[in-house]
Design a protein around this nucleic acid. Structure first.
Lengths: 197, 197
DNA sequence: ACCTGAACACCGTTCAAGT
DNA sequence: ACCTGAACACCGTTCAAGT
């Protein structure tokens, strides 16, 4: 345990990612700069270039870690033994909780354009994340508890609603408290829509 | 019609906003810089400072103009004589068309945090924009065609779905063609949800 | 293999000075 | 009233050189 920083940081890559996540959470995306990150971690401004080809590469790594964290959270929250409505509610709560705790990170995750050259790791992490919702809807559809039709379309529109609510939270149009309190109403809307009966 | 630019631009403010919108549409938010804008318009890099206190002020002006344009488009698309479903569909189509043509601008519009100090003009423009949807839902609710419950909550969740779909478009997860083609299915989902019957 | 220091080409913002 | 030019404090990225 050296008092003064050694020439080699040890795990600069991980330290940069951790500092970046903290900055994202505490000061937002606009405050994220490689030079500032380097300063926080105590290396020269050129050092990050060894571990990330450019700033975008660091953002991609952040997004990847975000998807992995979110996917695990959703997976843990999903209880296949539950009936559809409470099962969906648990998933929605987990998603909203993540959106509240990681608003800037989630925006960054969504901001990644659907590039064909996106890493396979990233694609896999996204698939893992979307998978929880897909499974719930597909199983419900098989049981006849969800309308027939292209599952991809159902997933998309359901995911869009969640994405939109997350956006409203991070835009400040919806408080975290209101969002969490409205989770049940949200699921009811997802299942029954605006029409009575 | 002077061949060489006069010392005074004439309407630098409007020219900067126009150039900014073009940049936003053609190259995206990341490419938007005050210095580049000044270059395009043919003034010194300090000139924009006369008309916009800082970059954020220009972004606010862009967002304001965007809301005004979107509000008018939605207002024009709304035909109160139509039954609920086609009426909503027309509104949704207009919104998606705007989202497709102004993806970066729309993100910028949403990005404006809900600051209490946001200009009254901006608040009014947002209210105008949200108003179209609010009217349709409120009138339908009065007719018993939409479930009872807090109208604000219904507006929010419906708006979130549209916002989410727009986000998916600008993230490239949904092609413009697919989005427009899915407008009817989207409205059906909004009205009836995922449950059969 | 990993990091530094200097350099380059950009930013946004400010401010005296010009017209 | 409106704009310019220089200055300041930042960026991201690259690259020779150091350890």
């Amino acid at each position: 345990m050296p008092e003064s920083r050694p020439y080699h940081h040890g795990d600069l890559r991980a330290a940069l990612l951790a500092a970046a996540e903290r900055t994202l959470r505490e000061k937002g995306t606009a405050a994220l700069s490689l030079r500032e990150l380097a300063r926080e971690v105590g290396v020269s401004h050129a050092a990050p270039g060894r571990h990330f080809k450019d700033k975008q590469a660091l953002l991609n790594a952040l997004a990847l870690a975000g998807y992995e964290r979110l996917a695990q959270s959703l997976n843990t929250a999903d209880d296949p033994a539950l009936p559809l409505e409470p099962r969906l509610t648990a998933l929605v709560r987990a998603y909203l909780a993540f959106a509240i705790d990681n608003a800037a990170l989630l925006e960054l995750m969504y901001a990644r354009k659907h590039e064909p050259d996106a890493s396979e790791q990233m694609a896999a992490a996204v698939e893992q994340t979307v998978g929880s919702l897909e499974r719930v809807l597909a199983e419900a559809q098989q049981r006849g508890e969800v309308i027939d039709g292209d599952p991809a379309e159902l997933n998309l529109v359901t995911g869009a609603t969640l994405h939109g609510v997350a956006g409203f939270i991070s835009a400040g149009w919806l408080t975290p408290e209101a969002a969490l309190a409205g989770a049940e109403g949200l699921v009811h809307f997802l299942l029954h829509g605006l029409k009575p009966r």
